[in-house]
Design a protein around this nucleic acid. Structure first.
Lengths: 190, 190
DNA sequence: CATCTTTTTGAATGAACATTCAAAATTAAC
DNA sequence: GTTAATTTTGAATGTTCATTCAAAAAGATG
């Protein structure tokens, strides 16, 4: 048999980046061929169709996000400080000139008219909330941890939209300090 | 000359609803013809092309939003109570089974790859923030009013994404009370 | 009523789209 | 070295898309 000429993971990453930036509907399969260097037949053999490729790309992105959070919170000297660092790095992303929010948040809004994809995205965002919740349960009881995880997600979603506005960083930082008063904002991040 | 067979405003409302629910790229002009009852030629004569129709639809929606906020805050016995009422009505929208966020927020995320449309959406969202800011300046000094308007928008954006999750209403209400502590949450709304 | 202007109509156009498939190439197995 | 299994290729397919336009219809004007 012929060896697979491409790495599945790498292709998923490339198409995730494309779908993320351009959006599901605005991305054509031709663009996918260009960005991955694959020919139509190869993509269709490997992934089935556009929707299936999108689903796998999204899932791949979500898994990477979960691992990133897991790593950050495990490495941090304490969980709340770790959360502050994650939020701070999100704020810094808003400085990037080609900022384009979060793939999951963008997909949640774009695909609200397509029940199957919508469900997938919702589940994945809830996995992220559940992960925060799990970590917070190390220091709070369950209802408290869940409430704080929800409040955190609400603020993250806010950041993911508000970051499109220029010069928003300092204003968002202020709002976060008011809105998430249980986080150790005064401790400076190394 | 032949009388215009349709009301421009009504057509803009119909197409805004379509673009809002389905998204800009996923909405075909054929769908526009169906929903408005107009023929291709009429739409193209009246609005130019798809992008121009979208822009006008979006602007129409934004103007209606601004007027709604203006009306709510003018009618309220005090501004902060009025803001609470607006937020409460947003929370209640999340109960609707065909909830689909806010046209402006959805557009901001979907069109991040199209500079011209992106700029338009950003400006309109900033108009809304400016309107809140203006009202808040009746009771706070300028920097305070601006900071509070920003924090309010951050929470509104959060609601507009988080509302897709089922059973989110009570959790969001809690998060709002923590995140916007300067609002009169304890006063019950009539 | 006749003429002029504007609107309406909807079939037609060409481009872009997702997807297919038969043929060619590649590698594994023995 | 031969055969079998799998992957690669890219032109071709049929559909859907945004948009156009010449002809028809509907007031307006005098």
């Amino acid at each position: 048999m012929a060896k697979m000429q491409f790495q599945r993971e790498q292709v998923l990453e490339q198409s995730a980046n494309l779908f993320w930036r351009v959006g599901y509907h605005a991305t054509s399969m031709q663009q996918v061929f260009q960005h991955t260097g694959l020919k139509p037949g190869s993509v269709y053999l490997a992934f089935g169709n556009k929707e299936a490729l999108f689903k796998e790309s999204l899932t791949h992105y979500c898994q990477a996000s979960l691992q990133g959070i897991q790593a950050s919170l495990s490495a941090a000297s304490n969980i709340e400080l770790g959360i502050c660092q994650i939020l701070e790095s999100m704020l810094e992303q808003s400085l990037n000139s080609d900022y384009c929010s979060c793939f999951l948040v963008k997909s949640q809004l774009e695909l609200s008219d397509e029940p199957e994809l919508q469900t997938l995205v919702s589940e994945q965002l809830q996995q992220i909330e559940a992960l925060y919740s799990e970590f917070l349960m190390h220091i709070y009881d369950e209802p408290e941890a869940k409430a704080k995880a929800c409040s955190l997600m609400l603020h993250i979603f806010g950041i993911r939209v508000y970051s499109y506005h220029q010069g928003s960083l300092e204003k968002m930082r202020q709002a976060l300090q008011v809105g998430l008063p249980w986080l150790p904002w005064k401790l400076r991040i190394n």
